[in-house]
């Protein structure tokens, strides 16, 4: 990663920021994931490796489930890639926020590996006060800290699987959807954002009934486009 366009002194700041609420919430999910890996009897290694390599929980859950069933390489790949399409708009948004003129492209492609829902929310909620050259290193620090921690949490969940009561495990698993949903409200700046939340929540289940694999993409495209169009008039830039 060459060039002086980025201010890498921001990296440890990002690490510290990530290890607050997002880290705790994510830890709960990965403990849940580790427990799932134990239950599927695919071995700890498959679960642990999927954390840094896939780094998106829905894809990881699909991976270990299909791997446990003995599905073929192509089938697993298709299942995982369908869950990963949703990362595309988040990556676009994060990249447009962190890129600087003359900055290394390699750094952008490296950063993108860390981007999933949590990092997108971390970027939306906590990065705006950082100067532009500090943003990519800041977020890279956040991603590195979270990834290292979640590898440990996957193992912890694998070990804790027999200790947790079902209700306690359910409450831990509930932290992640709660964090996703509440942070959407926290990051909402325009009427459009609230309309998007409402339309996504309504359209998703309807599509799921007929095309369970496409519900998220369809809810995003249809709900998001509708929200954008109906709030277009009268919206002013902040």
């Amino acid at each position: 990663m060459s060039g002086t366009a980025y201010d890498w002194t921001a990296l440890p700041h990002g690490m510290r920021a990530a290890l607050g609420v997002p880290g705790i919430v994510m830890a709960a999910s990965f403990i849940g994931f580790g427990a799932l890996v134990r239950g599927l009897e695919v071995g700890l290694l498959a679960g642990v490796l999927s954390t840094p390599l896939i780094w998106a929980l829905p894809g990881q859950v699909v991976f270990v489930n299909m791997y446990a069933e003995g599905a073929g390489l192509a089938a697993i790949g298709l299942g995982v890639t369908l869950t990963a399409v949703r990362l595309l708009p988040m990556v676009v948004l994060v990249i447009s926020k962190v890129r600087v003129e003359g900055g290394s492209r390699l750094a952008l492609y490296a950063l993108s590996h860390f981007i999933a829902v949590t990092i997108w929310r971390v970027a939306e909620d906590g990065m705006d006060h950082e100067e532009r050259p500090r943003r990519l290193p800041w977020l890279m620090g956040a991603g590195l800290a979270l990834m290292a921690s979640m590898i440990v949490m996957t193992c912890a969940g694998y070990v804790l699987a027999q200790v947790l009561t079902p209700l306690l495990a359910a409450c831990l698993m509930f932290l992640t959807p709660s964090f996703f949903f509440i942070s959407l409200f926290a990051g909402a700046k325009f009427t459009m954002d609230y309309v998007s939340i409402a339309l996504g929540a309504v359209i998703g289940p309807v599509v799921y009934r007929f095309y369970p694999e496409l519900d998220l993409i369809a809810a995003g495209l249809v709900g998001g486009t509708l929200a954008y169009v109906v709030t277009r008039i009268g919206r002013r830039k902040p």
């Binding site: 829905p58 949703r86 708009p89 988040m90 676009v92 948004l93 829902v117 997108w120 959807p177 996703f180 949903f181 959407l184 909402a188 325009f190 459009m192 954002d193 309309v195 998007s196 939340i197 409402a198 339309l199 996504g200 929540a201 359209i203 998703g204 289940p205 799921y208 519900d215 998220l216 993409i217 809810a219 995003g220 495209l221 249809v222 709900g223 998001g224 486009t225 929200a227 954008y228």
Partner: peptide, 17 residues
């Protein structure tokens, strides 16, 4: 802005699912 709306609706649908 449109991408932002799409991503927001998508994550909302994920939570509801």
């Amino acid at each position: 802005m449109w991408v932002r709306a799409v991503a927001t609706a998508l994550v909302s649908a994920l939570v509801v699912r």
